[in-house]
Simulated assay, not measured.
Amino acid sequence: MFGMEALQYLIVISLEEGKVVDVLDDALLELINVCDGRYCRISGSPATADELGTLLEMVDYMLAESGACGYTENMLSEAKRRSTEDTALKMLKQKVQEAEGKEQAFNQLMEEREKKRATEVEELKAKHAEERRKEAAEKRQHDTKRESLEEAVRSHLAMLQLQTNTNADDVRRTSVILLGLSGSGKSSAGNLILERAGNQYSINEPCRSAPQPTLACERKEVLAEGGRLTLVDTPELWDEDGTENLELVKDCLALALPGPHVFLLVLQVGRFTQGESEMLGHLQKIFGKEFAEHTIILFTRCDSSQHRAQRINDYVANAHVSLQDLVRKCGSRYYVLNVTKSQSALSYPQVKDLLAGVNKLVASHGGHCYSTKRFSVEELKERKKVMEERN
């Protein structure tokens, strides 16, 4: 009725009363994916100011991405024109079917005439007996060849099926290490990324209570977009004097095998301390000078007091020169993630954009993981084995 263009301006709104399910069903998930993740939940009536603010921000985001003019009269006219063409095509197909019916009747008439001729030439059977025997021999030869070819096709299909089953476990793997200072929101962001990447929408949001500090490296995995995504959460890898914790460094690299492919440097919007301005230097000493080439900056928004949050591009453009320099050294690759309960509806498209950026960065390096010269792969594999046995 409105054409495929209307999907660019469509937002799915869920008006929910009573019990809310934790996981989206397949039909709703498919609709959300068609709408590029534009999905907003309103828990009751009337809607709260935060929920309406979230919806309005999603509308602004949609118009900024698809064009401020919105859905136009020209788009509607074009959809009606295509609908008219489809109707004409259906009529044409109906006429084709009628023609095919007439052809079938004609063929039946020809078969009847052929039978009549066969009756008239019955007396010629003796003469053609030898020819018929030859034709029968040729037919047997043809059938034998056809059966041989069919057997070859079945054998080839079986081999392809075996190869498919063999490669079923060889899925694309992407390994990401979360880095940042305590209180930056690493753990909350990691949990939210895993939920949204796994197509889960839980009412138990990660920031509903103060998260516990991360004391050890932790690995979590989820299947996302036909591949396996591995996130490794880490505590601070150095102390107040800037001395690295070598054991934690080995742990995070071992848990990221086969990888890491991407480092996710987590910073909280509105907070940029002296320690965070020195992070890149510490991390380059730990992982190597090429660290920044494999790094994406993730800004977490944990302050729910703002009704209309500042756009992340404006935030970076007006940030301290030290933060701007950090962003520039990391290739100006940065994303934002709302981890507050009131604005969690925005996290679905945000995680989708972040994962697209991760895949793009991995592809730019040819799909190869980041290798450090400090530790061999064999040493890290042995470390991982020891950690798994310990747990």
Score class of each variant (00 low, 15 high):
274 Q>M: 02
102 K>W: 11
141 Q>L: 15
220 K>D: 08
77 S>Y: 04
111 E>D: 07
170 D>N: 15
222 V>P: 01
332 S>M: 11
93 K>Q: 10
176 V>Q: 02
165 N>Y: 12
354 L>A: 05
329 K>F: 11
247 E>V: 12
218 E>S: 13
372 T>D: 03
343 Q>H: 12
106 F>A: 15
158 A>T: 13
354 L>H: 06
155 S>P: 09
136 A>T: 15
87 T>R: 09
289 K>I: 07
76 L>A: 01
259 G>Y: 00
168 A>F: 10
137 A>Y: 12
230 T>P: 01
202 S>W: 11
76 L>K: 00
185 G>F: 09
142 H>G: 10
93 K>N: 11
335 Y>K: 11
218 E>N: 14
282 H>W: 02
290 E>T: 14
335 Y>R: 04
58 M>V: 00
14 S>L: 13
301 R>F: 14
232 V>W: 03
354 L>F: 12
277 S>N: 13
83 S>W: 05
237 L>Q: 02
265 L>N: 01
286 I>N: 05
129 A>I: 12
118 A>T: 15
158 A>Q: 12
331 G>M: 09
357 G>F: 08
285 K>R: 10
85 E>A: 06
259 G>A: 06
162 L>Q: 11
73 E>D: 12
155 S>H: 14
10 L>Y: 09
222 V>W: 03
40 C>H: 05
293 E>N: 12
36 D>P: 04
251 D>W: 08
110 M>H: 14
69 C>P: 12
149 L>S: 14
220 K>Q: 09
57 E>Y: 02
254 A>E: 10
390 R>D: 04
22 D>Q: 07
293 E>L: 15
223 L>Y: 07
296 I>G: 03
349 P>C: 01
